[in-house]
Write a protein that binds this DNA or RNA. Structure first.
Lengths: 239, 239
DNA sequence: ACCTGAACACCGTTCAAGT
DNA sequence: ACCTGAACACCGTTCAAGT
């Protein structure tokens, strides 16, 4: 679904203004695809999802949207702002936990749904923490901080817990895509990996890779470590 | 020290071959700066350290090394390979723990020295886990796996522990540079941050930022969480 | 073996101009 | 207000040629 061609490449550009009495100007494509900040972000998202963020360029985007490159700059300050908007869009896709959960359930829900949203757009994982946070990502941070705020944790433990949880989510997501990349790359330059692993210097690494290849790193691993952190926090609650 | 100009920009290129009876060809600069894989990596490292990895380009590197761009390609397959070598060089700078430490001390030492090496080259933090690992990074992984291998942990807990430790190191490093970036960026576009934080929607985030600004996130935080993980592992040791 | 310039296929963005 | 092409200052890399 959500493929690559959101907007057709119809170069209609109706010069005949005869029967076209619409308020909308010039180009009318199916779906009312007028140039808009939202449309640009949507198309950029599709492009990043399809080809990875490295292949997202203003020029390709303009071609896809069937407009001049510089037209984009009427809706977006620069490429950095576009990427920020993209990342924040992913943050917006994070499912918000229902209000009736206790703090522990809320943290679990939030961790899981943040992981899910990121893995839905793997390209976001490496840049999530590097990109300047937009309002939706701020809202997620706020939510997690809030979750840990009034449960009786000493302030420094709350801070620690916040970072421990954030790091776990981020680290696990990274770990997931790393293994995907490793698999993909091994498929191409497999020789290089096997060659390295053949060396007995890296016996434990070989063991480790095989452990993961055997499918032992089920998603439970995520919850397991998550619960270790939550247990630790629970023990620190002053009653 | 380790500034930006490792090699002078002397365009000597001695055409007079009179008294020069050395075996070494053409260009002789102080310090014997012949074009070499090692020299290229060294210069690239200096460039990344000075201007960040985004500004590292083959062309700038060639200018710095006073050679044609394409000359570099006789020592390096492509830019990706260069970056891999760079990251692996940082891995090589990680201080190896002495052999007489117990597993817990070894893990602590390794975590700390990995963090230190990465923070010495902040540009490496975001790409550390994304870049294809070279031999030195493999060796670090091997060492950590080995450290956790024969101390009586069930295999899945050892795996969990390995990832928990890796994630902690990486997450903490990221956290450190994020706050640096935040500070740097706030200095420039400060308005945007303060404006966002002024919103009561983000009251906890504001609190959090102030907490860190007040210097509460001492390096002890690193050891604190590290020890939580190590405690958890210690409890899982079967005797 | 080692080095190279020209050329190709790309980038993001400024600027001055169009409607 | 909205859109644009030309131009500028960059990229990484292929290729064919030099020593």
């Amino acid at each position: 679904m959500k493929g690559s061609t959101l907007y057709g490449k119809s170069t209609v550009s109706v010069d005949t203004e005869g029967e076209c009495s619409l308020a909308r100007p010039k180009k009318v494509r199916e779906g009312d695809a007028v140039l808009t900040f939202e449309h640009i972000v949507e198309a950029a998202m599709a492009m990043a999802d399809a080809d990875g963020i490295a292949k997202l360029s203003m020029r390709r985007l303009a071609t896809e949207l069937d407009c001049g490159v510089m037209s984009l700059y009427h809706y977006i300050a620069d490429k950095e702002a576009l990427v920020e908007a993209l990342v924040d869009q992913v943050a917006n896709e994070v499912a918000v936990p229902p209000a009736d959960l206790d703090w522990r359930q809320t943290a679990q829900h939030l961790a899981r749904s943040t992981l899910d949203a990121q893995l839905q757009h793997p390209w976001v994982v490496p840049i999530w923490s590097t990109t300047w946070p937009g309002p939706h990502r701020f809202a997620l941070v706020e939510l997690l901080l809030e979750t840990l705020a009034d449960i009786g944790l000493p302030p420094d433990v709350a801070d620690l817990g916040f970072h421990a949880l954030s790091n776990h989510i981020q680290g696990f997501a990274q770990q997931q895509i790393s293994f995907e990349q490793l698999a993909a790359r091994a498929a191409i330059t497999g020789a290089r990996l096997e060659e390295l692993l053949a060396d007995d210097k890296y016996a434990r690494v070989r063991e480790h890779v095989e452990f993961h290849r055997a499918g032992h790193d089920t998603p439970d691993e995520f919850d397991f470590t998550l619960n270790l952190i939550l247990d630790g926090l629970e023990r620190s609650i002053e009653t």
